[in-house]
Nucleic acid binder design. Structure first.
Ligand SMILES: [Mn+2]
Ligand SMILES: [Mn+2]
Ligand SMILES: [Mn+2]
Ligand SMILES: [Mn+2]
Lengths: 146, 146
DNA sequence: AACAATGTTTAGCCAAAGCTAAATAGTGCC
DNA sequence: GGCACTATTTAGCTTTGGCTAAACATTGTT
């Protein structure tokens, strides 16, 4: 007799969301760093701050935490580098991000809006949901005849 | 010549996500309060704490903030009530939540997982994306012949 | 080589969300 | 009606992510 009250399993959902939010910033940072390194060869704290729309000081502090967590390496007044763990997280993040964004556009959401929504949604998408989105993308591109 | 660099518009996306996170807790609380009032006639702080998977003390503090923001009314040792603004927010939240969850299931995500993912995703979904999801739900239920 | 301009970090502040332990208030039973 | 039990709030601490203003380094120019 499963599914008795509507409350069952609810705490787990909220817990997962809170957990997602704790890794969210790390994900966005390493993703951004990977992008910057591709685009311009190096990632400086200032560039990160600008892209995030956040002050320099905030970035400095967060980078310190990410270094403690072994996701990046940095020395004062120098650019930032990703550790292996950081690169892995960045790669996963970029993949997820790309899928979510492409999916939203395929659904019919305008690109500008899709870009914005994807930035938040990406962190709450399970492997299952990501699979479903990929399935939809494949299926949809198969029969272009709507 | 729009869309020059890949960075354009990025800060806006991050800002939106941060803004979403600031209203997220308020949304979840009022939604939960509305649910509890329907299910059992009243919403007590303790019930909220249990459903959120969070301590009583945390709920007390957050409810205080929500009262300052005129979303709820409460007196010590009594149940919590929604103001008009609170009811409106709750209604919007429930609608969004229901659409996102139904959409994920329609996409082929298992109910348990859909419930969990929806709890985080709901707060990052724009009106446009919500429309697209509804469109998909209607369309999909139209031709059940897969 | 010195200095001014620019870029980066540090210092110090705030608010939100979480926690545990202690104090206090209600409720229910005898 | 008083007392014990239970529920609720308060107190006090932590972490995270923001901010601005001040201090400090680096760099480029003369
Ligand atoms: Mn991303
Ligand atoms: Mn993001
Ligand atoms: Mn939620
Ligand atoms: Mn979120």
């Amino acid at each position: 007799m499963t599914h008795r009250s509507p409350a069952r399993g609810r705490p787990a959902a909220f817990r997962r969301t809170r957990a997602d939010h704790q890794t969210e910033i790390a994900e966005d940072y390493v993703e951004l760093i990977a992008e910057l390194m591709e685009e311009r060869g190096e990632a400086r704290g200032t560039d990160i701050a600008q892209r995030l729309g956040v002050s320099n000081a905030t970035v400095v502090k967060t980078l310190k935490r990410l270094q403690d967590e072994q996701l990046i390496r940095q020395e004062p007044y120098r650019a930032v580098f990703l550790t292996d763990a950081g690169q892995k997280l960045a790669a996963d993040g970029r993949r997820k991000h790309a899928i979510v964004e492409a999916f939203l556009m395929a659904l019919g959401v305008k690109p500008d809006v899709a870009r914005i929504d994807a930035e938040g949604i990406e962190h709450h998408v399970s492997a299952d949901t990501l699979d479903a989105m990929e399935r939809y993308l494949r299926h949809q591109s198969t029969n272009k005849s709507d």
